[in-house]
Simulated scan of single mutants.
Amino acid sequence: MLMMNRNKQAKLHYMANGFRMLSSGDHVVCAVSGEKIDLDELRYWSVAKQEPYASAEISVRAALSKG
């Protein structure tokens, strides 16, 4: 039962202080780099854009881009 969500992309709702799982899984995909991010490693996201980022540098780059 615990293995059900292995290698499955989760769908999340990103909030200011965390995220809520909408669809279970074990990772998300960085909106910029396409890199797989394990949920326990997810630290950066945009509440406004509702997208995850693999690193602080990528999140800043995404915040500065128009779009």
Rank of each mutant, 00 (worst) to 15 (best):
G34T: 08
V29P: 03
A48M: 10
S55T: 09
E35C: 06
R61D: 13
W45A: 05
A54D: 09
H13L: 15
I58G: 00
Y14W: 08
K11L: 14
D38V: 00
N5Q: 12
A48V: 10
S33C: 11
M1N: 11
E41C: 07
G25R: 04
C30E: 01
S46V: 02
H27F: 07
S46K: 04
H27C: 06
E35A: 14
L42W: 01
M3E: 11
S55Q: 02
S24D: 12
N7K: 05
N7F: 08
E41N: 13
V60N: 03
V47D: 11
E51W: 07
Y53T: 00
M3S: 12
M15G: 09
S33Q: 09
V60D: 08
A62V: 05
E41K: 09
I37V: 10
K36G: 02
V47K: 10
A62L: 06
C30S: 15
A16V: 06
M3C: 12
L39H: 01
M3L: 15
H13Q: 15
V28C: 02
M4D: 14
V28N: 04
K36R: 15
W45T: 02
L64N: 08
R20E: 11
A16D: 12
V32Y: 02
K11R: 13
S46W: 04
I58T: 06
G18Q: 04
K49Q: 14
L22M: 13
